[in-house]
Structure formats: C-alpha cells, structure tokens
Design a protein around this nucleic acid. Structure first.
Length: 476
RNA sequence: GGAGAGGUGGCUGAGCGGUUGAAAGCACCGCACUCGAAAUGCGGCAUACGGGCAACCGUAUCGGGGGUUCGAAUCCCUCCCUCUCCGCCA
C-alpha cells in the first residue's frame, strides 16, 4: 500500500515507476480521489467541532440555569444532526474509494532493478557449481520416483484430484529430511532465524497484509463455514426471486428472457468477510503478519523468523503448465525466511537472506544460478527480487527454487506494523521474505542430480544424518 | 457446545453521563544534584487523520460495530477476544 502523501508530493516519479512495470499512470486519478476525501473530512469535522462546542455550551448554560440559551443551542445541534449522517456516509465512501484504488496498485521497483517485460529480461547475477556429467541420459524426477514405486500421482488424483502426489518410503523420508535440514541450518549460527510453527489458516486481513488480497483471491484456496454459505444462498435466492417477480409484474412473462443474466449477486461482501479462512499460499503470510498492528522496539530489529509449512495454491492461471510431476502442485512444503527490519537495514538484509538461501543449495551440492528479476516479472509487493534457479538435469533446465524479495514499507502499511526508533519516532518497518528453500522442488533437484544409472538415488551427505544413515534410495 | 468473569495508554490500574485523551504507580526521555553512578527532586511522555509557512488548532480512538442522548470510557444491543468451571474431541 502506498502513502498517498508520497504520491501527492511526487506524482511524476510515481507514474514513472509504474511505467517501468508496464502500467498506466495513476497519480492524477489517485490525487483526485484524495482531494475529494479530504474535502469530505473537512466538512464533517467542521460540523463535529460545532456540535461538540455547542454541547459544552449547553452543559454550561444548564449549570447557569439559562434555559433560554440552552434551548437555542439545542435546536442548533438538532439541525446540525440532520445533515451529519449524510456527511459521514460521503466521507466513508470517499475514503474507501481511495483505499480500494490504492490497494490495487503494486509496489514500485528500486532504481537498480533492471527494466523488462517478462522473465526473458531477468538478469543473471551469478552462478554456483557446475553441471554434472552423466554416463546415461538423466531422467526426470517423476520417472525416477514412479520407477522406485515411491511417488504415486494416480493414487493422489483419486484422493484429491490433479496436482497432488503421494510419496512413500525413502522419497517421503527424503522430503522430511530436507525440511528438517533446512530448518536446522537457518536456526543455528550464523543464520540465526527463530523457528516458528504458524497457523496455516488465516483471516482476510492477514492475507490483505501481505497483499495476496484483494487482487489475487483466485490463486488461493478459501472456505466459509456452512451456515454462512447457507445464509448467502438464502439471500441470493431471495434477491433473484424478488427481481424476477418485479420483472414479471412489470412486463409479463414474455419479456423475462431478455433480462437473463442480469440478476445481481446478493449483498455478500467478498472483500472482507470475518467468517472466511484462507489456506496459506506461503508461510510468508503468517510470519510477516506476526508483527501486524504492533509497534516494535528498534532494539528488536532485525527480527528473523523461519517456518517449514505446507503451502496451498489454486494455480488458477497455470492450466496446462507443468502438469507432469511435482513441479507445480496444489500442496507443497516450503521453508520460508522472513525478516522485519528498519528502513536502513532492509537492503543489506536482502543480500543476507539470499546468501542464507544459497547456503542450503551449497550444502546439498546443487548447481544453481541467481537472477535479478526485471520490473515486469516481479511480484506485486516487491521492490526487488532475486530468484534462485536450480539446475535440473532431467529437465535439462534451470527452475526456480527460491525467491527473495524486499518489500520496503509496502506490506508494513497494509499491516500497520511499526517500530519506535532511537529518536523516539514511530515509523513503518520494512519486510522481506524468501524461500529457504522450496522443499518440494529441492526434492526434485536432489533426485535428478543424485540419480544413478540403475535408477537409485544417492543421498547427499548433508542429509544422511536425517535419513538414519541411509546412503541410497532404492527400489524395495 | 453450556455457565460465569473480564477487555481502559508501553505495562499495572482508577474512572461508571458534562474541562477525562483519560487519576495514580511503573517504565521511558530531558534537566538538577554528583567526580561518576545510585537515590532524590522538577519537567516531559498515545496514535491516526485533517487544517496551517509555523506556533498551533480541530476530529476520531478506552476490544469491533450499531443505538440512546444536546453530550458516552461511562447506559442499551450485537459481534469478537481472553480467563475460570463443565461437556465433547485430535
């Protein structure tokens, strides 16, 4: 969420930054909404000030037994109160219009972020490790997993539909080992993140805080309690029934077809609904919101937290993409890193976070590269993002395994997360998040990288302690 | 799920219809005292929004929303949350 005062003071810079993301200018429209809002506030507050002053005068007049004066004031307040409800509604409407518009606008890229349209314009930052040579044609992870009898997509589809998997035996344990290993690395020196086990189900305002809402609702899984859905259905039917009745009364049955499709949905607010819960698409959501609506002490910053959680994504826009294998699932495990910092700390923290994520791949001895995302490929809340792409020999390409973003105060504004600086001022914190790393995709990378000619998987040294000393995953 | 108690500033805690944005204490900041520190004394100390070049002024906020009233932290309704007891349950 942007600060409207910044936009007011720097409309051209704001629009130029949006243009770098390939977006149309917004400053003029936003400033107009803001002016309307402020005019309405002024109008309302002037009336309230008069009402309050008059009320005090009434108190005094009554104390002085000046009934005449009290009466006059009373009628003045009565007249004022006639017009005030309308002002209140107008003020609320104007403020909401501005807030809604602001909530739809993505964060601005930092100066050093490369301009570009899509992932083809991302810029390689550096590489680590090298492609291995195989004396055979390397297979993809699902070929390996299915041949081992430890990765079962068909059964998963029976249970849950497409984009789920059932893991078994060594492969299941390998996934667990990866998560444990990553958490252990991040919670010890020198990374020093604090381990957190957060809720996986969150409220609307929490999803709004990290900017999954309102714009990306279709990418998420959510649910309402049954009684809320029943009530909604009841209201909708009532409204449709009434509209149909009105229409028929007005024009007779013959004209009814013409109006097809125009029946409105009920007055069910899909934007903020206190009865709704969302499955988290990433632990970034609960971890970042840990500090929502609070004022931190500067001494507590930077605050670093990590969690290993399941993540749930509807993958609505990815129909037909990566349909084979575990690359793109509705449910996957991920270790997430989140830092809460002061504005001065966030840029260094971003580099630090990237190196923490890289450390995992180094210890697993996986080949990867780091790219700086271009303006057109960055996420909604991000000011700057590094992706880590791991080499998959079976797929013969680099695939994203981590994404580290610095969000500035964009999320902090939405969450109202602040800190008290040493000079006693209260300011918004900066937030950062990154995968450290995606466990599902790390599993894929390990399987494809460590595959052997006979289809077995060598267990990386760093993981053997987590696998009870197991050195090879083989068919059983 | 049932019964009861309660939600006030960073914390503890008063207020229960009219200079109460809110006593008092703690914490914190400044000053004095001191070679320094402690102790003590004096002063300061909420957030957001709006207006103003500024000094400053206004509005809102005592869990959320709604109502009564000229006026609500105080009265009424409703929702949420916390605690205690009972029931159910992984």
């Amino acid at each position: 969420m942007h600060d409207i005062r910044f936009i007011r003071d720097n409309p051209d810079a704001f629009d130029r930054a949006l243009a770098r993301r390939g977006l149309a200018p917004e400053a003029k429209r936003l400033i107009a909404l803001d002016e309307l809002r402020r005019a309405k506030i002024l109008e309302l507050e002037t009336a309230q000030a008069r009402r309050n002053a008059a009320s005090k005068e009434i108190g005094e007049a009554k104390k002085n037994k000046d009934e005449e004066k009290a009466k006059g004031l009373l009628s003045e307040v009565a007249a004022l109160k006639e017009t005030m409800p309308k002002m209140e509604v107008e003020e609320k409407t104007a403020s909401k219009a501005l807030d809604d518009a602001l909530a739809q606008i993505p964060n601005l890229p930092l100066d050093e972020v490369p301009d570009g349209k899509d992932e083809k314009d991302n810029v390689e930052h550096h590489r680590c490790g090298a492609k291995r040579n195989y004396a055979f044609a390397p297979k993809q992870h699902f070929e390996l997993g299915e041949a081992l009898g430890q990765m079962d997509f068909e059964t998963a589809a029976k249970l849950s539909g497409a984009r789920f998997v059932v893991l078994k035996k060594g492969v299941a344990r390998l996934e667990r080992a990866l998560g444990q290993f990553m958490l252990d690395v991040h919670t010890s020196e020198p990374h020093n993140y604090t381990e957190v086990a957060p809720p996986l189900l969150v409220l609307d305002q929490t999803m709004f805080g990290t900017a999954q809402l309102p714009k990306f609702a279709e990418d998420q899984f959510h649910f309402f309690p049954d009684e809320v859905l029943r009530e909604h259905a009841r209201q909708t039917i009532e409204i449709v029934w009434k509209q149909a009745l009105d229409f028929v009364t007005e024009r007779g049955m013959a004209g009814a077809r013409a109006k097809e499709g125009t029946f409105e949905k009920g007055e069910f607010d899909y934007r903020v609904n206190p009865d709704r819960r969302w499955l988290i698409p990433t632990a970034e959501v609960p971890l970042t919101n840990l500090v929502r609506e609070s004022i931190m002490d500067e001494a507590q910053l930077p605050m670093r937290v990590t969690a290993c959680t399941p993540c749930f994504r509807a993958e609505a826009g990815a129909a037909g993409k990566d349909t084979r294998g575990m690359i793109r699932q509705h449910q996957f495990t991920k270790v997430e890193l989140v830092s809460i910092t002061t504005p001065e700390q966030s840029k260094d923290e971003h580099e630090r976070m990237l190196s923490c994520a890289e450390e995992i791949l180094k210890r697993l001895d996986l080949h990867y590269r780091v790219v700086t995302l271009c303006t057109g490929d960055m996420g909604f809340a991000s000011q700057k993002t590094y992706d880590i792409e791991v080499w998959l020999p079976g797929q013969n390409m680099f695939r994203e395994i981590s994404s580290c973003s610095v969000c500035g105060d964009f999320q902090a504004r939405r969450m109202n997360a602040r800190y008290r600086s040493k000079d006693r001022n209260v300011r918004h914190v900066h937030t950062l998040n990154g995968s450290g790393v995606a466990v599902g995709r790390a599993l894929i990378a390990v399987m494809e990288t460590y595959q052997q000619a006979d289809g077995s998987i060598a267990v990386p040294e760093a993981l053997q302690g987590y696998m009870g000393g197991l050195k090879t995953i083989e068919k059983q």
